[in-house]
Design a protein around this nucleic acid. Structure first.
Lengths: 214, 214
DNA sequence: ACTTGTTTTGTAATAATATTA
DNA sequence: ATAATATTATTACAAAACAAG
């Protein structure tokens, strides 16, 4: 019922072509898989009958496949290729050009989504690593604290029995443990308008390693 | 020079309207800020005269503003609002619906780009923090190592004088220092490809998801 | 500078499908 | 099940930015 105006951009491509009326509007795919529900209401555009005589739409699968393949080889489209394709497919060169424009735009979008998801994975992985590192820092600090305690004890027992110096490193270590957490203030501060490189990280193999820690 | 076919979808909206031919194609914006270079070639579309009589294009600023405002309030569009807008703007309700559809799509894309840039910043910040933490871990390990050395020395002097146990924590600490660095293998590994800029950093708004894993 | 041709970006419209009331 | 709306993908046009010539 639909697809009435098969006569469309006809005569756009006034090249001589054996296939006659060019495979433009192509009802194609005669199957009609799922008739489902068509938009029957408000068959707008038909109001005044011979109106809207421009039902453009849908290049045939053949055409799209060819274009797609061509696009795969090279996203750019030189006049040469354009005209060749147009001839081969029975399309207006203009249509070929437009198709490529739109295809590039689509491609760009898809790429963005892709990169987003990659970045997300990378971010998650990095965040997790950061967490683990934080945990490790805490653990190390505790161990260090223990060690320092131990040293205090040992030194104390030393003091009553014999007298061993070796104080230089010791006090240093102590300080590190007692002092402010070493981090926390100086964080960024110097990394402001400065930029530096960071591995783009596309796909960090996986997060499988996580299972070892969770 | 351009904008020839002002006569367009006229009669599409056959509602009665005082503004006559509806403010469709609108040359509008008489300013002509930057005339620059116009596309003068191939004024296609007019080829065979009454062909392609669908030069649609460009709702007036008025119309767009209204639509935009309406969209700001609510991305969804109920029949009611649709019809109201259509009447107010002198458009076919269909056009209003289409406008909203396209607007939603555009919005989605913009949002994606936004989120991408946010995520990138967050990732950069996290990466930096991770680096700092790695540094800290190394430093702490070194300190711990020093402390352990100290303990060994003290214990040795002890052995000749008195005998202090306190072995449990001690051996644990030792192990931590001697053992594989806990990290260090799974590091990165895939960070070789391309790189991207890391400006700023600061403000990681949301790492809340972490709590789900820890 | 001026023209010509192409790419990018944004907008309008159509169609097919999915969702929902 | 049906009709209205939403979503997704396509086709097309136009304007601005660029690049040769």
């Amino acid at each position: 019922m639909n697809h009435l105006n098969i006569e469309d951009h006809i005569m756009l491509t006034s090249h001589l072509y054996s296939s006659g009326p060019y495979t433009q509007i192509v009802p194609q795919q005669g199957e009609y898989k799922k008739p489902k529900r068509r938009r029957n209401k408000k068959c707008r555009g038909g109001e005044s009958g011979a109106f809207d005589a421009h039902k453009k739409r849908k290049l045939s699968d053949e055409q799209v496949n060819m274009l797609e393949q061509s696009f795969g080889n090279e996203h750019k489209l030189e006049s040469e290729r354009k005209d060749k394709l147009a001839l081969e497919l029975g399309l207006d060169p203009r249509q070929v050009a437009v198709w490529f424009q739109n295809r590039r735009a689509r491609w760009k979008n898809k790429k963005l989504e892709e990169e987003y998801s990659n970045l997300k994975k990378a971010h998650e992985a990095t965040t997790l690593e950061k967490c683990l590192l934080e945990t490790e820092v805490l653990k190390l600090k505790e161990q260090l604290s223990e060690a320092e305690k131990e040293i205090q004890i040992l030194k104390h027992t030393d003091r009553v029995s014999s007298n061993s110096p070796s104080s230089s490193q010791q006090s240093q270590s102590m300080e590190a443990v007692v002092d402010p957490p070493f981090f926390g203030e100086f964080q960024v501060d110097g990394y402001d308008d400065d930029v530096f490189y960071v591995p783009e990280t596309h796909y960090i193999n996986g997060m499988e390693w996580i299972n070892l820690y969770i």
